[in-house]
């Protein structure tokens, strides 16, 4: 089985631990990179051999926020192929509309309960592990 390389852009430490904890419950092989905000993530994705298969992105972050990062990503000739999924607490209609317009591969609301969260993340990661992914 291939290793799925995931970039999680999330400023909350416990959220990152939670995400990793879910991945550890799964049988897939993964490679998780963490970024605390959009700027940090941009530096990471521009390094060679560090381009992830899939990105999970929080919207509310200090410095460069999720939508700003998404716009830069989707305007980049090489990086625009990376599927990016939003992982947020905001179900603000305007946010959702804007994200889909810019180009996202999914929009996941963070549930309150860990059990519900685990189920959602497992399904999403599982899904991307079955997909054909492109690296330029």
């Amino acid at each position: 089985m291939k290793t799925l390389s995931i970039l999680l852009i999330e400023d909350d430490e416990i959220e990152s631990i939670k995400f990793k904890r879910v991945l550890d419950t799964m049988v897939i092989k993964y490679n998780l990179t963490l970024a605390k905000n959009g700027e940090e993530a941009l530096i990471l994705v521009q390094e060679e051999n560090k381009i992830p298969d899939v990105i999970f992105l929080d919207l509310n972050m200090p410095k460069m926020n999720g939508t700003e990062f998404l716009k830069i990503l989707k305007n980049d000739t090489a990086l625009k192929y990376i599927p990016a999924m939003i992982l947020t607490t905001s179900n603000n209609r305007a946010d959702i509309l804007e994200c889909y317009a810019v180009g996202i591969a999914g929009y996941i609301l963070k549930p309150l309960r860990y059990e519900d969260y685990k189920e959602k993340i497992q399904v999403a990661v599982e899904y991307w592990s079955h997909n054909e992914l492109i690296k330029l």
Partner: peptide
């Protein structure tokens, strides 16, 4: 509301763990 939601999710997760 949003700022309150995040820590609440953390608390919930921590209890579960």
């Amino acid at each position: 509301s949003h700022d309150l939601k995040s820590p609440l999710r953390s608390i919930s997760s921590l209890i579960s763990w």
